[in-house]
Simulated scan of single mutants.
Amino acid sequence: MNAHATYPATLDAEGLTLRVPTAQDLPHYAAFYAVSDVEVGGYRGNRTDAEVQTILNRDIAHWEAKGIGIFLVFEGTTFMGGTGLAHPDDWPCHELTWWLMPQTRGKGVATRASRAVITWAYDTLGWDRVETHMRDENTPARRLAERLGGEIDRRQTFPDGVTRDVFLLPRRIA
């Protein structure tokens, strides 16, 4: 039994369902990494089966160890991607993060899912701040942070050597 047994099995996100991944979600992870053109957690698309299994295992273990993590995002039974709160052991702070199947981008999925996670962090976890860390060249993610009401709080150099803008995300925007 872990110390974080209170994390939710699912969150509702304006017509989307967010749920904690399980070992049975390997096909969803494999589908994402087979077509992804973006870097997620240090991984890019076209990963081997063993690498995809390692990523899924890491995400499940993150929930068990920290009580937060990546939710898988579904609209009905259609897998859309993932979003959640990550805090790798070597990272200085938590971060709202997301990744989407290419065909779901530009449809408001990341916005709706991220709002649900932000609300959960503030209202259920009792956090006093939620942030996301942005590479300078990641224009789509910057636009999402701004849609979520995020404002640049600081610039910080992270353990991977990349200096990023840190966006502070409010509880909820009108």
Rank of each mutant, 00 (worst) to 15 (best):
H4S: 05
A9V: 07
L16C: 02
L16N: 05
L18S: 09
R19P: 01
R19A: 08
V20L: 05
P21L: 01
D25I: 00
F32K: 01
F32P: 11
A34H: 14
N46T: 00
A50K: 12
E51Y: 09
E51F: 11
V52W: 07
V52H: 05
V52I: 15
I55L: 12
N57H: 13
N57D: 15
R58D: 12
A61W: 11
A61C: 12
E64H: 15
E64F: 09
G69V: 01
I70S: 07
V73F: 05
F74A: 05
E75S: 07
T77L: 10
T78M: 09
A86H: 06
P88S: 11
P88C: 06
D89K: 13
W91N: 08
H94D: 02
H94E: 09
W98R: 06
L100F: 13
M101K: 04
G106Y: 14
K107D: 00
A110V: 07
A110M: 08
S114M: 05
A116M: 03
V117C: 09
I118Y: 11
W120M: 10
A121L: 01
G126A: 06
G126V: 05
W127M: 14
D128V: 03
R129E: 15
R129N: 13
R129A: 14
V130G: 09
H133G: 06
M134N: 10
R135V: 00
N138I: 00
R142M: 13
R142K: 13
A145T: 03
I152Y: 15
Q156Y: 14
T163H: 13
R164I: 00
D165H: 12
V166D: 15
F167V: 06
